[in-house]
C-alpha cells in the first residue's frame, strides 16, 4: 500500500479530530471541554476543505457550529458558572464506555473509508460547489429541505413555550 501526501494529511487531521473528540468527553472542566469541541469542529472543517474539496460545507460548518452553536454553549456554561467541586466529583464509568464506543465507531468508519476514499475524496474530484449543492437542495430534496425548516421552527416554538411559563 503506497502512502501518498493526501494519506498523511488525512491521518494527521483524523488524529486531531479523534484527539479533540476524546478531549470533549474526558476533560472535566466544562469550558475546556467546550474549547475542545470547538477545535474538533474546526479541524473537521479543514478536513472538508482540504480532502473533500467542499469549501462550502466547510465554511457552513464553521458558521453554524463553531460560530453560532459554540457561542450558545459557552454562553450557557458561563451563565451557570459552575464552581470547581460541582464538576470534578462526577466520575461516571459510562462516560468512558461511551467514549470508547464512539472511538470504536470512528475507527470502524476509517476502516470502511480507507478502502473507498482514495480517488473519491481527493481534491478536484468533482468538488462540491455552492451551485451544485443549492441545485440539489432546491430541486430533488426540496421536500426534505422544507420539512427540516418546519422542524427547526417547531423546535424554536417549543423552546419559547418551555421558557415562558405564561404565554
Amino acid at each position: 500500500m503506497m502512502i501518498n501526501a493526501w494519506d498523511v494529511v488525512f491521518f494527521f487531521l483524523a488524529g486531531l479530530i479523534l484527539l479533540s473528540a476524546l478531549g470533549v468527553v474526558f476533560i472535566r472542566h466544562p469550558v475546556y471541554s467546550a474549547l475542545s469541541l470547538l477545535a474538533n469542529l474546526c479541524v473537521t472543517a479543514i478536513l472538508y476543505l482540504s480532502l473533500m474539496g467542499a469549501p462550502f460545507i466547510a465554511m457552513v460548518q464553521i458558521i453554524v457550529y463553531a460560530g453560532a452553536i459554540m457561542v450558545f454553549f459557552l454562553f450557557v456554561i458561563m451563565l451557570m458558572n459552575l464552581s470547581k467541586g460541582e464538576y470534578q466529583e462526577r466520575a461516571v464509568p459510562w462516560r468512558l464506555l461511551l467514549g470508547l464506543g464512539a472511538a470504536a465507531l470512528f475507527a470502524f468508519q476509517i476502516f470502511i473509508l480507507a478502502g473507498e476514499w482514495r480517488g473519491v475524496l481527493s481534491p478536484g474530484a468533482g468538488g462540491f460547489g455552492v451551485k451544485a449543492l443549492s441545485h440539489f437542495i432546491f430541486t430533488r430534496y426540496i421536500l426534505a429541505f422544507e420539512l427540516v425548516s418546519v422542524l427547526i421552527f417547531v423546535a424554536a416554538l417549543g423552546a419559547v413555550a418551555l421558557a415562558k411559563k405564561k404565554l
Partner: peptide, 8 residues
C-alpha cells in the same frame, strides 16, 4: 465564518 469565531 471566521469573524463569528472571533466573537468566541
Amino acid at each position: 465564518s471566521l469573524a463569528s469565531v472571533g466573537t468566541i
